[in-house]
């Protein structure tokens, strides 16, 4: 396992590339989901204050 992680001495380069790719992938999926969620939360709150008051109790 350690040997595999070391990637024949190129581990730092290989894992930098793969982690950057993971970060980009997570970001492009998570940020629009978060944006939509925030929109729905915000507008639901504006629309039905009673419901929201109820939820916060």
């Amino acid at each position: 396992m350690t040997e595999w992680l070391a990637m024949g001495g190129h581990g730092l380069y290989v894992w930098t590339a793969y982690s950057a790719a993971l970060a980009v992938s997570v970001w492009v999926i998570a940020s629009p989901l978060y944006r939509r969620r925030k929109f729905l939360h915000h507008h639901r709150r504006q629309k039905s204050p009673c419901l929201n008051k109820h939820a916060s109790e």
């Binding site: 492009v28 944006r35 939509r36």
Partner: peptide, 17 residues
């Protein structure tokens, strides 16, 4: 495919706004 998925999600958020 990941791009297509990310694009759909981003477009949906944009359309709502």
């Amino acid at each position: 495919l990941l791009f297509l998925l990310a694009l759909l999600l981003a477009m949906r958020a944009e359309i709502l706004e």
